[in-house]
Structures are given as structure tokens and as C-alpha cells.
Design a protein around this nucleic acid. Structure first.
Lengths: 230, 230
DNA sequence: CCTGTTAAACTACCATACTAGTATGGTAGT
DNA sequence: ACTACCATACTAGTATGGTAGTTTAACAGG
């Protein structure tokens, strides 16, 4: 245990990350009842760090803790999704505006290799018919994160991440059920091109469309996975 | 203890609220070293709820917890202030846009009485030379919160509050050191008038100016209270 | 006086025991 | 068959003891 702690940080953070991933990748499905003790036994740690991880996840609205009764993985709340998406859309339009007027040279390379990886990931998926949706999700996240870093707002990205867990769960659900990632990738490329051309107005418009993709498909997702939604 | 719990919620929330208020009203000054045990003894509770309250406050960046070493009240970080202010400015311009196009009748009364209370609070201050800055701060908060509720985004306001603790500490500092609240009040009135007139463009502009007031004075505050800043 | 060492006095972290609410299933009484 | 009640087995909340890492300050040697 002590050795493990040194490698991976505190037991609390370790537990937090494990549980969070299980929730986001729907290994723990929305509506599932879990308990501190059960999870503590499963991860071979005591209740305290689990409990603290639960608290953090409850703040991010991934868990609903009912005092003296139990804890359940929260269902995806489409109102919460929309509020998170709203914030992200409005902020990210401002981010892309900032980036248009000043895009640091070294981040250009980062963004280009990220875009190349996205293409690769999509091709791999079409060829081998494997599940690369988590990998693609990560690349998608990275793309946007680079934009935030490029204008010195990396921390803003982190802050928004905390508010967007419901939105992110929906996005991951979308990736795994929809095999056509081409629209996403082409929009990413388009945004990059517009940034280089410093075409603020069009960049803002494409970003807006980009962050509205999920909205269009959310009704379909709701039909396919009704048990995941509130 | 049990009786107290029933009245005020869990011991954890009680502790959290007490400590948070002490930090925001600078009773616990930025840079102060505190410990779980010391605070537990002071509030007559055990270390566990205090520890959990500390965690929550650390997430909101009001505390810096250094593992195995200690916990200090975080100093006001002007970069954090600016990132929080940035988000709030951009979102609140969108909020005021929404409210301009549809302002519910019943919230009109709420807003008007809030504005009247602000005026009263300011007058009381000028007359009796007492400290009403906390009361005014609350009214200021309420003004903006009503706008968010008016367009069905009350939860967005709650979420932004979590990110804006550094910004809020600076605002409170400003209120207590600057005796002229007239600019703030007149801007609030102006925003209200523009909403009624559905003058979106000017409303957005005034809101932007309003949320930039602190920026102008932050250098002066930094000079007056250098020990509060990082 | 200065510097490197060490031991003691902190700290937060974690494990565990206990308390007090809550859900549930069985049973006695109707 | 139904209902009210109670025993029991959960749950999260709280208290507390012990551990390991960090800071501090006393002290030895230069």
C-alpha cells in the first residue's frame, strides 16, 4: 500500500480517479447503487479515502448521496447537460476569438499532431472495427484544451471540466453509439484553418455548431438508453 | 450536539459555512496557517467533518492543503481572479441578452425591491457611518442571481459561484475600502432600465463595464493590502 | 558565528469503531 | 388479505487512535 501510494499519489486521489473513470465509461451505469464499504473492499482501501472521493464526485454531480440511506450513480440530467453546454459554448467562442488574434507558434505543432492522431484513430476504428472511442474522446478533449492553453487560460479549461461531467458522459455515449466521427474531425480541421486565417467570425460560428452536435442527437440517445436518463 | 445538528444540518455543512464565512470576510486572513485539530477544538466537533469541510474549501481554492505539512488560507491570486472574472463577464453578457428578450413579470418586482434595498443600504451607510458592506455584497449578489433565475439558469449561477471565490474576496475587499458605491448602484439601475427597454447591445456593454470595475481598482487594493496577495 | 545533523513536535492521511438515521422483511392482530 | 408494528440489517455521519511524511529548533562540530 505504501509503495503504491508513492507511485500514484494519495489513496484518495487514486480511488477518485478509478471511480470517476468507471462512471464516465459507464462501467458503473447511471442509477447503480453503490456503497462506501463495498467500494472500499473492492479497491482494498479503508472507507475514509473512498468517502472523500465520493464527496468530490457528488460535488461534480456524478453521484447522489442520500444521507443515512445510500449512494447512487446519478442519471444523466439533460437540463444539467444543457447548462454545462451553454457555458462551454459561450466561453469557447471567446477562447477561439482570443486564439485567432494570437496563436503561439509552438502550439501550432501540438494542434497539428493532435489532428493527425484523430484521423489515425478514426481510420483504425473503421479498419479494425475495434473500440477506440475512449482514445478519440481523449484526443477531442486535448484539441480543445490546447486552444485554452494557447491563450493562457488552461485553468479555465480545468474549471469548466468540473461543470461538464453530465455533458461529457453524453458525449462519450454519443461516440460509442455513432460510428461517424467525420463531422467532428472535419470541424476540428476547419476551426484550425480559420484560426490560422484569423477569420474570427467564421471560427466562432463553426465552434458554436461544433458544440451543438450533441444537442441534435440527444433525443436519439435518450431513446436508445432510456435507463441512463432522468 | 445532536440537537444542534437537527437545527442546522450536518456538522460538516455547519463547519463548512462557518469557516467559509470567516475566510470571505477576512476574519481568517490570506496566508493564515490553520490545522484540522485546532479548528475542530474551536468549533467543538471532531476532526472528520472539519477535514471534509477543508477538502471542499480546497476545491474552491480558498485553502491550500499541503499533504502531511499543513493548511493555509490561500492568498488572493490575481490571475485566478481574472480567469473567474473572464468567465463571469462572458456568461453574464449572454444572460442579460436572454433576459432582454424575455423578462418574467414576477421577477420585475423582485429586482425592483432589490434595487430599493441597495439604495437604502447605501444611505444607511452614509448616514450612520456603520459597516454595511456585507449586507450590500449580499444584495449585489442577489441582483445578479435574479437575472440568472429569470432565464432559467439558476444552477449556472451556483456553478459560477464555485469558481469565483477569489473574485468575490476581492470584491468584498473593494466594498469595505471604497466608500463610493454609487457607481455600482447606478449601473444596476441602468442595466434594469435597459432590460425593460430590451436594449440588448447597450445592456451587454454596461454589464461588461460593471464586471470590469474591480479590474480598475485592483492595483490600488494590492498596494493597500499587499499581505493578502500572492 | 555559521553549517550540517538529528530528534522531537508538529501536520495531514488513513483505518477502524461507534452512532444514528433509513429501508425492509417478518409477524401479530384485525 | 391487509395493516400496524417491530426487529434487523443496512446506510452515511462522526469520533478517535495510529502512521508516515514535514517542519522546526536545538545542538554538535567547524
Amino acid at each position: 500500500m505504501t509503495a503504491r501510494q508513492n507511485v500514484r499519489g494519495s489513496t484518495r486521489d487514486y480511488s477518485y480517479n478509478i471511480i470517476r473513470n468507471k462512471i464516465l465509461r459507464l462501467e458503473l451505469e447511471p442509477g447503480t447503487k453503490i456503497s462506501e464499504k463495498e467500494m472500499a473492499d473492492e479497491l482494498n482501501v479503508s472507507r475514509t479515502p473512498i468517502r472523500e472521493a465520493f464527496m468530490k464526485l457528488a460535488q461534480e454531480e456524478l453521484l447522489d448521496i442520500i444521507p443515512q440511506s445510500g449512494t447512487v450513480v446519478s442519471k444523466i440530467n439533460l437540463e444539467h447537460v444543457e447548462e454545462g453546454r451553454f457555458i462551454r459554448e459561450k466561453i469557447e467562442k471567446e477562447i477561439v476569438t482570443l486564439v485567432c488574434s494570437n496563436f503561439p507558434e509552438d502550439n501550432r505543432f501540438k494542434l497539428e499532431s493532435n489532428l493527425a492522431m484523430q484521423r489515425l484513430c478514426s481510420d483504425k476504428k473503421n479498419l479494425h472495427n475495434h473500440l477506440f472511442d475512449e482514445e478519440f474522446f481523449q484526443l477531442d478533449e486535448e484539441f480543445h484544451q490546447i486552444l485554452f492553453s494557447s491563450c493562457g487560460k488552461a485553468r479555465t479549461w480545468e474549471m469548466l471540466q468540473m461543470l461538464n461531467n453530465h455533458f461529457n458522459r453524453l458525449r462519450l455515449l454519443r461516440l460509442s453509439s455513432d460510428s461517424n466521427w467525420e463531422i467532428i474531425i472535419s470541424q476540428h480541421h476547419e476551426i484550425y484553418r480559420l484560426i490560422l486565417n484569423q477569420d474570427v467570425d467564421r471560427a466562432r460560428k463553426i465552434m458554436e455548431e461544433h458544440l451543438n452536435l450533441v444537442v441534435i442527437e440527444q433525443n436519439e440517445l435518450r431513446k436508445t438508453y432510456p435507463q441512463y436518463f432522468i
